[in-house]
Design a protein around this nucleic acid. Sequence first.
DNA 1: GATGAATGAGCGTTCATTCAT
DNA 2: CATGAATGAACGCTCATTCAT
Lengths: 191, 191, 191, 191
Amino acid sequence: MEKPDKREEIVRATLALIAVHGFHGAPLAMIADRAGVGTGTIYLYFENKDMLIAEIYKDIEDRLSALIMEGYAPEKPVRERFLHLGTALLRYFIENPLDFRYLEQFHNSPYGVGFRRDYMLGQKRNCNVYRELLEEGVDRQVMKNLPQATLFALAFGPLLTVTRDHILGFISLDDSLIVRTVEACWDGIRR
Amino acid sequence: MEKPDKREEIVRATLALIAVHGFHGAPLAMIADRAGVGTGTIYLYFENKDMLIAEIYKDIEDRLSALIMEGYAPEKPVRERFLHLGTALLRYFIENPLDFRYLEQFHNSPYGVGFRRDYMLGQKRNCNVYRELLEEGVDRQVMKNLPQATLFALAFGPLLTVTRDHILGFISLDDSLIVRTVEACWDGIRR
Amino acid sequence: MEKPDKREEIVRATLALIAVHGFHGAPLAMIADRAGVGTGTIYLYFENKDMLIAEIYKDIEDRLSALIMEGYAPEKPVRERFLHLGTALLRYFIENPLDFRYLEQFHNSPYGVGFRRDYMLGQKRNCNVYRELLEEGVDRQVMKNLPQATLFALAFGPLLTVTRDHILGFISLDDSLIVRTVEACWDGIRR
Amino acid sequence: MEKPDKREEIVRATLALIAVHGFHGAPLAMIADRAGVGTGTIYLYFENKDMLIAEIYKDIEDRLSALIMEGYAPEKPVRERFLHLGTALLRYFIENPLDFRYLEQFHNSPYGVGFRRDYMLGQKRNCNVYRELLEEGVDRQVMKNLPQATLFALAFGPLLTVTRDHILGFISLDDSLIVRTVEACWDGIRR
DNA sequence: GATGAATGAGCGTTCATTCAT
DNA sequence: CATGAATGAACGCTCATTCAT
């Protein structure tokens, strides 16, 4: 018998409930119920609800960044690397819609602001690959000479919007459309 | 002496507090306090908190759409019209950062989902100008042949991201940068 | 044009609403609305809600006692006088169900207790006719030798219960049944 | 040490407070305070205030009906059975004045109406003993030929009134008076 | 470690009462 | 006289957090 690991169950339940109902639609009692543990048990693994939420955020980010870096070849051309990152991102979200919803909920909350700040200040571990790619693109003059944040918005903003629409069922992202969408993003940033 | 109009004060206070703290970080007691009225007064002007929130949303949308349509010339080329819409949007949000934050909070909430659906179904009054422009662009073959939702994401997704960064102080959008950003969005969607 | 007399309108509205919804289901705003006056107007005629309620109670009591005394002949035999009182009471309530419901609401509330006490202490003006009749009945040995309150309960308790059932539609009190019911009450108290 | 059982404490406090102050004079905060628990605790045992009130009503009804049926002998004469029911009822209420007051409050409220209807329709479990006895009395021609509801009013209406007077201190019901009162009720319904 | 009964601050909402007009 | 906008105390209810078992 696999050990069901209570911590893991709690994380799973929290992710699912918050992704669907938002932070305020997911009381700890409901989370504990879904996870099959007592409410008090949550406090054995997490300091409080805020920490639970923040740790799940980090978990997702780690999984996401691991997947994105898989097969990322720094020696390849900037464009190719960008397409790799973009499609990997899109595919990850499509396959893990709960993670996407969770990230959205998270960014749109008091918690999220600080994290965005960390990225801009370059203090976030695994965000650097985005930064570096965009900086390199500007340096090599294959991308427009725009501020880092603007390039980032042009490159990844549409991907988030499009993912949301896919999850809500407004469009259906197949492999072909994924590639064409990321290519269109590239058109936005390339010189 | 101007009459301070309690309803107006309530709206102002609600907008400011929800923009900063989100729906759940802005209890009615706090709103009433900030507006300089009693809590009961809110219920003279709004049926309940949900209606207060929804009405403010509509107010913003009306103001926004009025401003965007100002000077919009349907006879001009698609590209020119797109630049008009994009820069107007960006300028409005920069000048009314609370409105922007409020819209973001709203879209990321149970309330917001229905509104997005309305847009996709083309049932929202003033959203049609976006739809029509994108459809026309595709028909005239000046834009990529991508689904409506994808084009919308490419065209306006970056604007939202960039606005957030501006409000958070990560970049400073001056007139020149606004134009260059919208032009970059155009590059993303144009054929 | 008849003068609509705001005070009268307020009383009418209050009676109707409280009879149907009870004290707590009839806010002053609703009463004022139904009466066609401003809420503040109520306070011109009544000190507060409690006084409004108490005065209406007295109004009903006065009307009731006036009607009951109409045709009451102190020189007639005790039994005849009792039948007169009982049938008059029953008929009044059947014709004025709102008054009946109002009295019930009133008696079953903090207000009502004091009034009952007044009756028992013989301090209520128009209740004396009941007292005197019952006392005379005992003195003349046509009624059972039971305490005043017990006789009162036997004599009038069933009338109240039966009226409620009539108003709720469980029985239909016609003239014949009214008489037979009051006669049955007499059987309960007569020696 | 007896375990004080919070649920029991809540019930006791609610019963006492509602009996004295009515439904609207007994806020949950006051009930919780009196029961020596937090307000939230009430919701562990009862779905909401309405359910709390309804469950207490059922508790009382069950206790009352159990006591009344104790020693009830269906083979005895109608009169004897009636005296049994009447005196048992009166004794129960005298010994449990809070239960009596509570029932009165309950019947005089939106809750109570439905229950009365149930009785009239014969759908209430333990009320049938009253119904059956009255029906049998009419069939055997020992009681007056009056509608069920009228007989019920004659039989039990005075008992309720007399109980209220006893509780309020207007009369003192000792064993002798109890019996004589119930016998007087019998006189009211017997042929 | 694990539990869930217990807590009470805080929420959205109502309504008797006041008072400027 | 008459109004009704304005008030805020008080309500029923929720839920993050604690702690005895």
